[in-house]
Write a protein that binds this DNA or RNA. Structure first.
Length: 424
RNA sequence: GGAGAGGUGGCCGAGUGGUUGAAGGCGCAGCAUUGGAAAUGCUGUUUAGGGGUGACUUUAACGAGGGUUCGAAUCCCUCCCUCUCCGCCA
């Protein structure tokens, strides 16, 4: 959520920066409503001040024993008159305030000053790449084919049990998934992230806090009987751990890593990535979440990306780092790097992690502040998060990049201790 | 699911419908004391919105939302949450 005061004080600059995203966001309505509501608010405050004053006078007169005096009745009459006047303007004030809130909630974040300007994904920037694009064997199989051939992956039965876009892992496939999760969590924990195992069902306030609601309700699964939703990412429960809290400044930065299943309706993606592990309604992800001092958020973002890259490098999977341009940035992100892993069967890179800096966008919505000792007032923290990594897509990358001439899949060195074997 | 108890500031904990943003304590900060510290003493210490360059001023907030009243932390209603006991349960 943007700061209404910033919007008020420099509407043109804000408009220009929002325009870099390419959408059409009109701020005139919200600015007009803001102007109106402030006028009403001032009037109401004055009326309430008078009313408070009368209350005190009545109190004094009552205590001095003058319970039925004429002057008391006159004061009461005046106070009732004020009450009616307030009742006349207050509903309008509430309605307008709610309108402003609703409008603010659907305005995307301002792109960071350092985010490259561009219209769409074609203008994203490749920052660096790592490893060789493995062209593979001539008879290299896509991950879903080798997975089924090895008997570690079954799509048909998952469809029977649920519906399309679900998978079942079997035997070594299930073990590999579990090994990846263990390896990722252990690595991050060693590197300073506190592990969290959060709830997988969250309330609407949490989704509002991280920005999935109100705009993207159709992307999430909802439990109709309850105010509960299946999490689309661990970002939601982990970020909201600190909702409505004031953190002591010296406790920052806070680093968490979390493994969770993620549930996404994938509305509007019919026919895309229908085969394999790439786009499922349920998948596993290890997520990194940071709460940091605003002054440090840029460097914290870089190190977050490095922590995600560390996993890819440990697994020896070729990848590249893409910095998203303003036109391709997600709703809440101010700056974002995608990590894309090499998938030889498709002869292309596919997103395996997205590392975003939200600046104070989420913390404003979720009301996550910090307070420095000796300083008056509070400030909003900056929140950052990134996948490290999407487990299913990592499995897909391993199944393709590690195929050998015998049709086996070599298990990456770092996973062998977890698997107790060298090949699938 | 049934029965009961309770939600007050960073924390603990008082609270009578009337100048209570809220006693007291802890914690924290500053000052004094000390060779230095502990102990002690004094002072200060919520957040958010509006107005003002500013000192400042004004409004709101005692789980949330309504109601009664000139006036509500205090009385009434609805909802949420927490705890205890019983039942059910991995």
């Amino acid at each position: 959520m943007l700061d209404i005061k910033l919007l008020r004080s420099q509407p043109n600059q804000i408009q220009d920066r929002l325009n870099l995203r390419g959408g059409t966001i009109d701020l005139t309505e919200i600015l007009a409503l803001d102007q109106t509501v402030r006028e009403i608010e001032t009037r109401r405050s004055h009326l309430e001040a008078e009313s408070n004053d009368i209350g005190k006078q009545v109190g004094k007169l009552m205590q001095s024993g003058n319970k039925d005096g004429v002057d008391i009745q006159a004061l009461k009459d005046r106070a009732n008159e004020i009450k009616h006047q307030i009742a006349n303007i207050e509903p309008e004030e509430k309605v307008i305030k709610e309108q402003i809130r609703q409008l603010l909630l659907v305005i995307p974040n301002l792109p960071d000053q350092t985010t490259p300007i561009g219209k769409n994904e074609l203008e994203n920037i490749e920052v660096r790449n790592w490893g060789n694009e493995y062209k593979g064997l001539p008879d290299l199989l896509p991950h879903y084919d080798i997975g089924e051939k090895l008997g570690i992956m079954n799509f048909e039965r998952a469809v029977k049990v649920s519906q399309s876009r679900f998978v079942t892992l079997l035997g070594a496939g299930a073990a590999l998934e579990r090994a990846l999760i263990q390896f990722m969590l252990n690595t991050h924990a060693q590197r300073g992230y506190q592990e969290v195992l959060p709830p997988y069902l969250v309330n609407s306030a949490s989704l509002l806090g991280t920005g999935q609601l109100p705009k993207f309700a159709e992307d999430a699964f909802k439990c109709a009987e309850d105010d509960l939703w299946l999490i689309p990412t661990a970002e939601v429960p982990v970020t909201n751990l600190y909702r409505d809290e004031v953190i002591e400044a010296e406790k920052l930065p806070i680093y968490h890593c979390a493994f969770t299943p993620c549930f996404r309706r994938e509305a509007g993606s019919y026919g895309r990535d229908t085969k394999g592990l790439i786009r499922l309604h349920q998948f596993h992800k290890v997520e990194l979440v940071k709460f940091v001092h605003p002054e440090r958020s840029h460097s914290e973002h870089e190190s977050l990306v490095a922590d995600a890259e560390f996993i890819l490098q440990a697994l020896k999977l070729p990848y590249r780092v893409i910095e998203l341009c303003t036109g391709d940035l997600g709703f809440g992100a101010a700056k974002c790097y995608d990590l894309e892993v090499w998938l030889p069967s498709a002869n292309q890179y596919r997103e395996i992690s997205s590392c975003s800096n939200f600046n104070d966008f989420q913390s404003r919505r979720a009301n996550i502040r910090f307070k420095a000792k000796k300083q008056k007032g509070t400030e909003f923290v900056h929140t950052l998060n990134g996948s490290a990594l999407a487990v299913g897509r990592t499995m897909a990358a391993i199944l393709e990049n590690y195929q050998d001439a015998q049709g086996r899949v070599v298990i990456p060195d770092v996973l062998q201790p977890y698997m107790g074997r060298e090949y699938l």
